[in-house]
Design a protein around this nucleic acid. Structure first.
Length: 577
RNA sequence: GCGCCUGUAGCUCAGCUGGAUAGAGCAACGGACUUCUAAUCCGUAGGUCAUUGGUUCGAAUCCAAUCAGGCGUGCCA
């Protein structure tokens, strides 16, 4: 339930008055359900509908609204000052002076942006999971953006968190890549990063195999050699695997994404086989057509070991889940994985439960929709991809051409740093501002045009605030800590900003509970838009001294919230743009 | 065949635990730069909420069916 100043005050006001006028005790959650915003701002600041009360009191909602509006009493220091009835609705008007004061006191104490109280639960979020020997493309970035942001949000809301990566460093795709690498003697002519180049080798291998299907036998041979730990191929595997890992690490660093633990598929194969053996003995698993399966109540049966005795994705996921529970003692386990694997995870969680892990109930598959290109589905097999490095390059060029080149007084280093921050913001915000479960289509032009509902828009609002703050400091207009003028903030532009900022903790709480990161994005956009309107209509530096001080406090609060909110999305805003 | 997800303005999407006249951004058109940074702001225009039926005082929202798209559906991940 919302704990913000406005919601709490309105709930209390309604509860007290309903008790007093109708002698009815009504639960806070019931009141909460009926609180909304009026359709138009001039109708009021907050609304309450009387439909549920009508049921309780056996009167028409209109009559109840009318009676409440006539008899309701507001105290001098309440943040609401009056109410108007419109049909079954009550529209409340805020007392701007009291509201501003109350909200800015909170902001000054830092209570709007500080991390929440520590919680008991330990949560692991597994994300990214790239395959070695393949390239990183924009589809992978959505996963990274979601997982990283979720970790940051959960940490902020007080959970102990572990961010986990899980590398696909075994399997057929590697055999194909290494086989082709050996056979074709391909050279890294572009001198691109070795790890990325491996991805190109892999794509070439797949193309070649499409045209020469008979060669697939040779790939299988390599795979067998790898599984049998043939020294030559293992050596090559080790070396190239390192290239991929270095490549991934450079991307994570650039995107400011961190992992607390790294898991590897190659390390879960043997433990996986042990688990299969154990639960065959316990009769939880059984043989079927030579493979090992687990039958489930409401789901299709799952195969947990292939008939040739080799492991599957599921084998390794079971082993890893066990490790997560037993070695890391986690209470909740979140898997950020594409929605194509929904059934797989339903099965895994169900099997874990059969295996006796109580934590299975606290496993959650955060399924995200795929990123596609206007030309169709992306695939590293067919090479229909936008590699991350290319994306980075073209965005960088765009930013320089359209804007940074004109900053004659900026150093090259400053331009470089700023460009990176803007690109990160554009990419991550683009990935996060839509419902995570929906497929998104990546259009280069839209991402490169930094207009409208984008990360850079928010960055720009933040940068403008920093500019005002810098100028105010220079001119000696520093905020005196004990001096409070917030009651002077009564203009509608100021009120909307105030209303936004007091809502921030509620937003975070909601986002952390429902994993709806897009709502944080939408909130930050709204705050930025409301700030921009304020910026155009209410000058800070040209205002009278007292008002200027109050407005400085206000924009400082906005700035802190923007920064905190952006950081929760994995975005670090530049001080200047 | 069955299961899950999606369908809202020309485009990209909000709104979906039922409530007031369905909202943003882009694109289009018109306006605001001797500025606290115009990557901004203001305004105009744009809708059979896929279709049909049901529940309800009230449905974009809930239910059913249909249509369209995506994904999955015993040895890929």
């Amino acid at each position: 339930m919302q704990r913000s100043i406005i919601y709490t005050s309105l709930r209390n006001l309604l509860k007290d008055n309903i008790k007093w006028i109708f002698n009815l005790d009504i639960e806070e959650v019931t009141i909460n359900k009926q609180i909304s915003l009026p359709p138009k701002p001039e109708m009021g600041d907050m609304a309450f509908s009387c439909f549920l009360l009508a049921r309780e009191l056996k009167k028409s909602p209109q009559m109840i609204a009318n009676e409440l509006s006539m008899k309701m009493i507001f105290s001098e220091d309440d943040i609401f000052k009056k109410v108007e009835q419109t049909g079954p609705y009550l529209n409340f008007f805020l007392n701007e002076k009291n509201l501003s004061k109350a909200v800015l006191i909170c902001s000054k104490k830092g209570s709007l942006t500080k991390p929440f109280e520590k919680k008991q639960d330990k949560i692991m979020v597994e994300f990214s999971q790239p395959n070695t020997h393949k390239g990183i493309h924009i589809g992978h970035i959505r996963n990274m953006a979601v997982g990283d942001s979720l970790i940051r949000i959960l940490r902020h809301t007080g959970y102990e968190t572990i961010s986990a990566n899980y590398l696909g460093d075994s399997g057929a795709h590697i055999a194909a890549c290494l086989w082709h690498y050996e056979k074709s003697k391909m050279e890294n002519t572009n001198n691109s990063e070795k790890g990325e180049w491996l991805g190109i080798v892999y794509t070439e291998a797949k193309k070649y195999l499409e045209e020469n299907p008979t060669e697939k036998n040779n790939v299988s041979k390599v795979q067998k050699l790898l599984e049998n730990k043939d020294p030559y191929w293992i050596c090559l595997w080790n070396e190239t695997r390192e290239w991929s890992i270095e490549y991934f690490k450079s991307i994570y660093k650039w995107l400011d994404i961190h992992f607390d633990v790294w898991f590897y598929e190659s390390e879960e194969e043997e433990p996986g086989k042990v688990i299969v053996e154990e639960f065959l003995n316990k009769r939880i698993f059984k043989y079927s057509d030579g493979a090992v399966i687990c039958e489930l109540e409401d789901l299709p049966l799952a195969i947990v070991l292939k008939s040739d005795g080799t492991t599957l994705y599921s084998t390794k996921d079971l082993a890893l889940a066990k490790r997560k529970f037993e070695e890391f003692h986690i209470d909740r386990s979140i898997y950020v994985v594409g929605d194509a694997q929904s059934l797989h995870f339903k099965q895994i969680f169900s099997i874990l439960k059969k295996m006796g892990f109580k934590q299975a109930d606290k496993c959650y598959h955060l399924a995200y929709g795929m990123v596609s290109l206007p030309e169709g589905k992306m695939s590293s097999r067919t090479g229909n991809v936008v590699l991350f490095s290319d994306l980075k390059k073209s965005m960088n060029e765009y930013i320089y051409e359209s804007y940074l080149d004109s900053k004659k007084d900026w150093s090259d280093e400053k331009k470089k740093v700023t460009s990176r921050k803007i690109i990160v913001a554009a990419i991550k915000f683009g990935m996060l501002d839509q419902d995570v479960k929906k497929n998104i289509e990546f259009r280069m032009e839209d991402w490169l045009s930094f207009e409208g509902d984008t990360g850079p828009y928010i960055l720009y609002a933040f940068a403008r605030i920093q500019s005002i703050l810098r100028k105010s400091e220079k001119s000696g207009m520093e905020i005196e800590p004990d001096f409070d003028n917030s009651h002077l903030l009564t203009m509608s532009e100021e009120k909307y900003v105030i209303m936004d900022i007091q809502e921030f903790p509620d937003i975070i709480e909601h986002v952390a509970n429902d994993y709806c990161i897009d709502e944080l994005c939408k909130y930050l956009l709204k705050l930025s838009k409301d700030f921009s309107k304020f910026y155009h209509n209410c000058s800070v530096l040209k205002a009278d001294r007292g008002l200027a001080a109050a407005r400085l406090q206000l924009i400082k609060a906005v700035s802190e919230i923007l920064k905190t909110g952006l950081n929760l999305l994995g975005i670090d805003p530049p001080e200047e743009m």
